[in-house]
Design a protein around this nucleic acid. Sequence first.
RNA 1: GCCCGAGUGGCGGAAUGGCAGACGCAGAGGACUCAAAAUCCUCCGAUUGAAAGAUCGUGUGGGUUCGAGUCCCACCUCGGGCACCA
Length: 943
Amino acid sequence: MSATPAPDTADTPAHRYTGALAQQIEARWHDRWDAAGTFNTPNPVGPLAGPGADKPKTFILDMFPYPSGAGLHMGHPLGFTATDMYARYQRMAGRNVLYTMGFDAFGLPAEQYAVQTGQHPAITTNQNIDNIRRQLRRLGLSHDPRRSVSTTDPDYYRWTQWIFREIFNAWCDPDTKKARRIDELVAEFDAGTRAAKTGDWATMSKAERRRELDQWRLAYVSDAPVNWCPGLGTVVANEEVTADGRSDRGNFPVFKRNMRQWMMRITAYADRLLDDLDLLDWTDAIKAMQRNWIGRSEGATVHFPVAGHDGERITVFTTRPDTLFGATFMVLAPEHPLVDTLTTAEHADAVAAYRRAAEAKKDVDRQDENREKTGVFTGAYAVNPLNGQQIPVWIADYVLMGYGYGAIMAVPCGDQRDFEFARTFGLDIVAIQAPTDGRGTDCSTWADAFVGDAPYVNSSNDSLNLNGLATKAEGVSATNAWLEAHGHGHATITYKLRDWLFSRQRYWGEPFPIVYDADGNPHALPADMLPVLLPDTDQFSPRTFDPDDAMSNPESPLDRLGDWVEVTLDLGDGPQTYRRDTNVMPQWAGSCWYELRYLDPTNDDAFVAPENEAYWMGPQGTKADGTPHPGGADLYVGGVEHAVLHLLYSRFWHKVLFDLGHVSSVEPFHKLFNQGYILAAAYTDERGMYVDAHAVEERDGTYTFEGRPVTREYGKMGKSLKNALDPMDLCELYGADTLRVYLESMGPLDASRPWESKDVVGAHRFLQRVWRNIIDEDTGTVRTLAEEPSTDTLRVAHRTIAAVSEELDNLRFNTAIAKIIELNNHLTKLGGCPASLADTLVTLVAPFAPHMAEELWARLGHTDSITYAPFPVADPAYLVAETVEYPVQVNGKVRSRITVSTDAPAADVEAAALADDKVQAALGGGSPKKVIVVPGRMVNIVA
RNA sequence: GCCCGAGUGGCGGAAUGGCAGACGCAGAGGACUCAAAAUCCUCCGAUUGAAAGAUCGUGUGGGUUCGAGUCCCACCUCGGGCACCA
């Protein structure tokens, strides 16, 4: 279903603002802006230094796009024009604005396309980037073109590799939780002020010392369980695995396998990533998602001795150490290493069978809806350290090896899962709290576990007595102190966050700046050997496997390039033969720091000069609420789908760079704004298949496709629902300015909104009226009104100025546009725009419809671009009227209106209200009990 | 199950605790026109009324308040995130 602008007819005035004229105007200004370098933004120092870098700054950032072959979809201009409007407004408000656009161009689609066509991904990637640059230009986005970067450019990924090298050469000091250089760790080992993990540093061999250091690095090779995806032929990060155990790209099964892979020690930053969320101006929803993903939980580590196994103990993590007296059994994950040791001969067969079943069930059948509790007894007994009771040890798959210690103490009276397990297998349930809901302490009568604060019972031994305490907080701290004092455990914090799996067995990504010596030790290449160029090949695909072949092994495309892999280098010990690392970095690597490269994109000496970083991203003192400003981009707009992956990874890298002294900002993105999706009607036929939405016809509320009825639904605009619209087609029809105004006026930026093609004409008509209020449609000459505007008109104009500034400051583009429409409608009623208000009207419109504004600005006689014209400032004198109309309520219902002078005291307003005939009638002769006068707003009389 | 959001005319949406429905679309009427389109003007929540007005009205039910779309409690529906996380 489509709508088109009114067709041009023979008597359409020659100079009407039609789609065709809009396009002429727009093309003209694109050329002029390019030729003049209008949006070039000066830096304080370096190649892009220039005058103006002493002004206050605003750094406005969009999530940069993947350069898909299909070009931009409608969601891109939604966010991009919003930031453009804000950028243009900020420039007119006198700020130095950094605003540009780069490309997140490594990744799977380009590689897969290359596999299909045999064309090198660099070629298609560059073609796609050129195409998207053309599209961005057509939308009139005021990017500084000199600052545009692509993650695939060797001049860019040189620094991605350089940062990797910095991370590799760093360790996280556990005392301060800050990254430090590995040299400082060596110095501490040498001085004996820090103990090595793997032995006595002083007596270690060179190779042993190297292995010790490798254990501390923030980027490290680990032989640990990773997510192996045979269907993609690569491993993927935890964050890239969906809840049902499949890859988010391609939807292939993912298997847990032990493999040697690169990891990033993001867990060392868990607390800071969590705590510093408080410094950020992000929505609570996104903060909650990050908190949830980090999954910090406070509790205790408790050791349970095993009966009959001297020295053997089961260690568990619990968030409720206060309920330890109620622990009546223990459960290990089926994969727990102690299972073999503990299982008695009598139970060995059952345990082995259960473990096999659990193994098979993994990943695929995991999302069992009914979640019946299963498990088997090992035959072993553990000893509750608090009361000496022997409790049975079971294994069950509801306990996960990957969290805590892979073992739990089960307190069935206070945990619903343990309760269900105990009921299923007839295990003891003992109350250790007197529930506050009156159910009593006989657990055999309970329907479920009791969770919450309640007085403790049955909770004492010789040296610890919880009975009488009534809150979890008191119980936990008393128990933790006891555990610590008696050597049975200690307070502990655990996280759901795992270290970040950083290597991929693909082609189209950044090579690692790492080589291995003859002993297999990794060495980071020195900075002057960067970049490690991605070698040329015509075999772009990794070996992929049957998606279900869990035991297959990855083969990276780079593995096949023997000439490239084998390399002779002098890394300080004379020329030696090394093997290059054949992994590439995940797509997230390039997007972890691109905002920093925008600041200084052509700097050859550093990824960003410190002066430029401090100017654009440095902390801005203390915020209004007293918290320190963390620095970072002033505005970051993008979709909510990156809430965990990109935003968590880039925060981590930024903090490492901060610790190592490379940046002054603590966080990369100070204010984050999540744009909504563009939804559009989609239609399914009787088989439930989507049909081309643009060919559906509506008649009297029913929809048909090729004569057959179809069902309408709404979904995210896109190819899969066959309801996508190309933003370029809209530019063709109406011009970019109309598309911009429509996109931003249809609702608040953070809301998803349904596209309605028939509504676009409203935005177009608005711009047409602005044009007509200034330009004669027949002659094309300026036709502003000579007479001075009335006070009434000036009031409307200045109220509009004040409101638009206010709305723009808060990114409320939809209401800002509505206010300008009101002003313009007022001028339309006057018969045109008074000459003395023309500049004001045009500058108000400029952030929204910049091409039309430039054109009108020029025709009004200005020779400079409107880009840096000052945004109008409201004259306070016109913001207050001489008289004000008060609604008068009687008992909360509006009964009348009175007009009094603006500065009338409340007593006069009250008197005027009471004197009003309609008010008197509503009062029915009675006298008011109370009169409330809200100055400037209203009067309410309580009768 | 848990954690976030959101429910307002025919539609998209607007409202620092203070006149609900700004602005736009659709719709109705009028002006202009030979006519149509475009443009301009007026109307446009429901019920009732000739009109003035009256009554009702922001998912449902309670509450706080002189006054609630807005704040509080409970519930319903939809959207998003997490999900046997100890």
